[in-house]
Design a protein around this nucleic acid. Structure first.
Length: 833
DNA sequence: GACCTGCTGCGGGCTG
């Protein structure tokens, strides 16, 4: 394979590596033959070189174009800024190596330049890119969109290769659809479409991912078999999960049984037995809490050990702990509180600088463990991590694999993971996810079809710079996979909206963004369209978050961020925990919280309300099917099967006992074909229905809407109907003569579609999604947009129908359209994404 | 009763 490279490249590679990996050889073959290529390989298998080396070799051998605007020939797009920075660093070695090899060989030394353009790039560097573009530009999807929507796009006119990293992470999202359109816009400015190289972790189905990457063109798939194996075990640290130790202060009367102490100790012990550990949790709050507890345990251990030298060495030897207690004491100084000596918390609300620092101290071996949310799931190589711990079942098999794959990054190494269920109801999910991780049974991905809000935004951006004949614009859009089947009706509806022709007067507050000359079928932007696109582009909705800054600092140092609701519940003087440190609130301004460090002080745990992603239906079905198989077997066979799937004795025993008790209580168990409905009176005497359905919140959510609607019609009451991943809980005031039965939640397929469609428009979810979609479509009036993005923090509320569920109802009824027609005409409806 | 819900990114074009 190497013979197709130039001499200098060959020299360098031969000196630096024994041989190309399978992914590299396959990628270079496909790329060298001029195909689009999708390279599926785990991180750490030489992916960067697989994607880049062919281009580097060509850049090294070909003369630099005379026209500086044609100089930039390779574009790299990463969904994460951190990864972009990492790639820039990883390119330095091959670039220097090839240059040195060329010097030794006496051939001309290439001078390949690399530039970066992300939100962190200062304005002067951005301008510099426009004047003197580098050979290779590293960027993000959002920054690429900005480049394409400014005069700087001229400096992309020479691009020949586009590398899209972590394709699997964007393909199934609106962010991916947005990127797909940006890539088509780029191709449209080039003499010939750029060659696309996609890099991805394991994905299913591969055809869908390839189609997303290539749009209308063929993509060569490079997917070498990987020898990499994973080992996942499910461990329960207590013999009987119904008999738990009590925690809490007895005098406060808050003692309650909890599995946490047992889990914390086990995790603490595991950290001590490994080089570097990443502990994943499913929420920022539990990451903070577990992290704090681990550091308390470390402080306790060092305190106990400092009693005598004998105890000291006994502890070190007995527990096999790697760090010396004396070292902990030295670092912590005074023995106040629990300094973050063995673990730090890492999640989306910890500031970027802090996270970078935490990542570096884990990589360098200074820090034994990091407790993270999915913030560490993707991205940069975490080096010598040899154990991944997962608290609670991971949200999906794909996420679980991605997380456990963070351990044992070296080629051929085994990735080890330990999953700790948090409660009995969590046991089965843990067992099934662990089994499916071993089988590589990740959930299927599907890219969104025709997300019209994304389309609207890109159309505004396109016509802001050039007039577009409708037919050309339509052809460009349909070359992108997510819009390949875009019907004329939908495109025209979007253009109607953007040009000010609305289906009802309720839209009158919208501002037209373009002019559609129907005689000439020509689209042109209105004044301000370009500015709007660059100031409000992208697909990620803004959330109401308060920045947390250090008070009195000369340059505002960002500590992290807090949810607005957490801030409303806080007062000056309160102490809370963020990033394993206590902070005292000094001041609360309209959009930020100023704090000072309060080490050792008792602190509140912060909370954030996040999205509710919901269990994938595919995983829900698998859990149900597994349960059905399990109950058909006798206890011995079933237990043996669970043990073979990675459960330890106590995990298997607890699960079997749980299933037995449940079966004794209800006779049937909820599986992929069975829904179990339990009815009982709660402590207030109200009826409650517990509908057990393991298919996940994506099914149970819409179902709950229909149930709520039926209750309103039947009993005239607004009953509480709460969906979750495992079912629906209905609470019904004791007004009904007849106690509700299972028929309350049974629907005909025909009927439920109609009920859900009718109920969706008045749901809170709809209102919030509608606002997001309208903002993404660049349709909101400027004042509303500004207010919406600072909603809550500035005290200003955007006016009228765009904000409240109540007025949304009016809006819907005035539009006098069934939900389905409304869906296409408004460009905006996205039900559960 | 126990358990108690994620992350990603982020102006350009003008005037003075």
């Amino acid at each position: 394979m190497l013979e197709r490279f130039g001499q200098a490249t060959r020299e360098w590679f031969g000196a630096a590596f024994a041989a190309p990996t399978d992914a590299q050889a396959g990628a270079w073959r496909a790329i060298g033959d001029g195909h689009h290529a999708l390279v599926v390989a785990p991180t750490g298998s030489g992916k960067t070189l697989a994607a880049f080396l062919w281009s580097l070799d060509r850049l090294a051998r070909e003369p630099v174009p005379a026209d500086p605007k044609r100089r930039c020939r390779v574009l790299y797009v990463s969904p994460l800024k951190a990864l972009a920075v990492d790639v820039e660093r990883n390119l330095r070695a091959p670039l220097a190596g090839i240059r040195h090899a060329a010097a030794r060989l006496g051939v001309p030394q290439p001078d390949i330049t690399v530039g970066m353009r992300t939100g962190d790039t200062p304005a002067d560097e951005r301008r510099a890119f426009q004047r003197t573009p580098p050979d290779i530009l590293i960027t993000t999807p959002e920054s690429l969109f900005l480049l394409l929507t400014s005069a700087a796009r001229e400096s992309l006119a020479g691009v020949e290769t586009v590398i899209i990293d972590e394709v699997h992470a964007v393909a199934a999202t609106k962010r991916g659809a947005h990127l797909a359109l940006s890539l088509e816009r780029l191709d449209a400015m080039l003499p010939r479409p750029a060659q696309r190289i996609g890099l991805s972790a394991t994905v299913r189905p591969i055809e869908e991912t390839a189609r997303f990457l290539g749009g209308s063109s063929h993509v060569e798939v490079v997917q070498p078999r990987t020898a990499k194996t994973i080992e996942v075990s499910v461990q329960v640290p207590v013999e009987d999960m119904t008999q738990l130790d009590e925690v809490g202060e007895p005098e406060e009367g808050s003692r309650r049984a909890s599995i946490w102490p047992a889990v914390e100790e086990r995790v603490f012990d595991l950290i001590g037995r490994h080089q570097s550990t990443i502990v994943f949790t499913n929420s920022r709050r539990s990451a903070e809490r577990l992290c704090a507890r681990l550091n308390e345990l470390a402080a306790d251990a060092s305190l106990a050990a400092s009693g005598s030298a004998a105890a000291d060495s006994a502890l070190a030897a007995g527990q096999g702990t790697r760090w010396m207690p004396a070292a902990i004491m030295a670092q912590s100084g005074a023995a106040t509180g629990a300094p973050p000596v063995i673990a730090r918390a890492h999640h989306g609300s910890v500031s970027r600088e802090e996270r970078k620092h935490i990542e570096e101290s884990l990589k360098s071996g200074q820090l034994p463990a990091v407790v993270a949310t999915s913030s560490l799931e993707l991205g940069i190589d975490m080096g010598s991590v040899d154990l991944v711990v997962q608290i609670e079942a991971p949200p999906s098999v794909a996420a679980g694999l991605q997380r456990v794959g963070r351990a044992g990054h070296q080629v051929g190494a085994v990735s080890r993971g330990v999953v700790f269920p948090k409660h009995r109801g969590d046991l089965l999910s843990c067992a099934v996810v662990a089994e499916r991780m071993g089988d590589g049974a990740i959930e299927e991905l599907r890219y969104p079809r025709n997300p019209l809000d994304v389309l609207a935004q890109q159309i505004v951006a396109m016509v802001a710079l050039d007039p577009w004949p409708l037919a050309d614009l339509a052809a460009l859009v349909r070359r992108a996979a997510p819009f390949a089947e875009l019907p004329d009706s939908a495109l025209h509806a979007v253009l109607d909206m953007l040009s000010g022709r609305y289906p009802s007067t309720a839209f009158a507050e919208l501002r037209p963004r373009l002019v559609w000359d129907r005689a000439a079928d020509l689209l042109t932007g209105r004044p301000g369209a370009q500015r709007l696109a660059v100031t409000s582009g992208g697909t990620i909705p803004d959330r109401g978050l308060f920045g947390v800054f250090l008070a009195g600092a000369e340059r505002a140092a960002r500590v992290g961020e807090l949810d607005e609701e957490m801030v409303y519940e806080s007062r000056v003087g309160d102490v809370f925990l963020l990033g394993s440190t206590s902070w005292r609130i000094e001041d609360i301004t309209p959009d930020r919280v100023l704090v000072s460090p309060a080490p050792g002080a008792a602190a509140r745990m912060p909370f954030w309300k996040g999205d509710q992603p919901g269990r994938p239906v595919e995983l829900g079905r698998a859990i149900g099917a597994r349960l059905r198989a399990l109950v058909r077997q006798d206890d011995e066979t079933a237990t043996a099967a669970l043990r073979a799937g990675g459960l330890d004795d106590w995990a298997a025993g607890n699960l079997m006992a749980y299933l037995r008790e449940q079966r004794e209580a209800t006779r049937a168990l909820p599986d992929d074909r069975t829904v179990v409905v339990e009815r009982f009176r709660d402590e207030l005497g109200d009826w409650r229905l517990a509908v057990h359905c393991v298919l996940g919140a994506k099914v149970n959510g819409p179902w709950a809407l229909a149930v709520a609607r039926r209750l309103t019609e039947r009993y005239g009451v607004d009953a509480q109907v709460m969906p979750s991943d495992d079912g629906i809980v209905v609470r019904l005031p004791d007004t009904a003569d007849q106690p509700p039965g299972a028929e309350l939640v049974a629907f005909d397929p025909e009927e439920i579609t109609q009920l859900v469609e009718e109920s969706v428009g008045t749901s809170a979810m709809f209102a919030s999604r509608f606002r997001e979609c309208a903002a993404r479509s660049l349709l909101l009036p400027a004042a509303t947009r500004a207010a919406a993005s600072h909603c809550g923090s500035s005290g200003r509320r955007p006016p009228s129908c765009w904000t409240s569920p109540g007025s949304m109802r009016t809006f819907r009824s005035r539009s006098k359209r069934p939900a389905s027609a409304y869906r296409t005409s408004s460009t905006c409806l996205a039900w559960w994404g």
